[in-house]
Design a protein around this nucleic acid. Sequence first.
DNA 1: TAGATTGTTAATCGATTAACAATC
DNA 2: TAGATTGTTAATCGATTAACAATC
Lengths: 204, 204
Amino acid sequence: MDIPDIIISRLPRYLHILEYLSRQGIQTTSSQEMGVLLGLSSAQIRKDLSQFGEFGKQGTGYEIPFLIQQLRNILKVNQTWKIALVGAGDLGHAIARYQGFENRGFYIAAVFDKDPEKIGRSIGTLRIEDIKTLAPRIREEGIRIAMLTVPAAEAQAVTNDLVVAGIQAILNYAPVVLKVPTGVLVKDIDPINSLQHMTYYVGK
Amino acid sequence: MDIPDIIISRLPRYLHILEYLSRQGIQTTSSQEMGVLLGLSSAQIRKDLSQFGEFGKQGTGYEIPFLIQQLRNILKVNQTWKIALVGAGDLGHAIARYQGFENRGFYIAAVFDKDPEKIGRSIGTLRIEDIKTLAPRIREEGIRIAMLTVPAAEAQAVTNDLVVAGIQAILNYAPVVLKVPTGVLVKDIDPINSLQHMTYYVGK
DNA sequence: TAGATTGTTAATCGATTAACAATC
DNA sequence: TAGATTGTTAATCGATTAACAATC
């Protein structure tokens, strides 16, 4: 019982389209329909889901609200996670104002920056806090996940602080390969990697 | 001669750390050293690179400037690509102001929005243009790549316009699965997918 | 019942790794 | 030369797909 990470990586996409279908008022779907929407084979979707239980019915497929509930449980987003956002530059501001987190399992609980000009200012209902208070505030709030939007040159130092503060997962927007101890997860959001991947295929 | 996409997907990361090592003033590296930096096996890196040629020397490894040049050629980022940015909201503004594109093969050549309040305003040196002029402007500028930062509800309609205008690759920030004809590439940047992937592993 | 679709097995396909001769 | 590291082969490992009995 140790499910391949590549399967886990597809579950958020399954959940996402199920929520989309549900918003359309659709109650039931099939591995076939999901596969068309995601560009995957129906066999793969059935195989992936069967790792966690028997969620469907022969002949009719999957009850969407039930499958959503199951996937939220599996991914642990039936609860709402607090996030610490570190770096209140342009990108940090955009993320802090983004409305899409809350009903998908997350909300920004605190924002930090080191710039005295920014500390104390507000982004929506959030107040920008002094990065010096990062560790105590993260512990105080019981935050386990951070989003990192500081400049590349500062990313590793801030990461070290986050690790000390007990952060267990970091979504890193800085174009840097972060070093973290085992047990701490990092995922990178680097648009340039995605763009360069596509230019390989795009005609000159 | 059709190289697996999973290999292509790693090349931008190779290029990225080589540029990093180069900035440190380092001239030479090995598959071993690159593997440590990226968390990959040295065998995999050698195998990946060997798909495209013999870039190393036994005993000494890889000349960094030479390997950078080769990877840029392969990924076609030895030229600079124009990008159309569609959607001048918070995220669009953050991307338009981001300094990190230019020396990695890209620059934002035009920004579009549909809001009359925004059209005509500036973001840095860029003027926000009317989205109604999307297709002619993209053709005029010879733009092949777009970044999409419009609201989810508008993403598919704008995508259709981009396709008609001849765009060949779309980096999509809207939390929506876009439908495009074959021949048009789409890559999604969805932080929530990444966060939900991590929460599977993070203790409650 | 007839039609549809699941969960699962076995076969296929593809990717990664170990190992080493070649050679700088 | 001795040490290091490549490029590549063969073996291993893992993921995807095809197919179908079970059954709603």
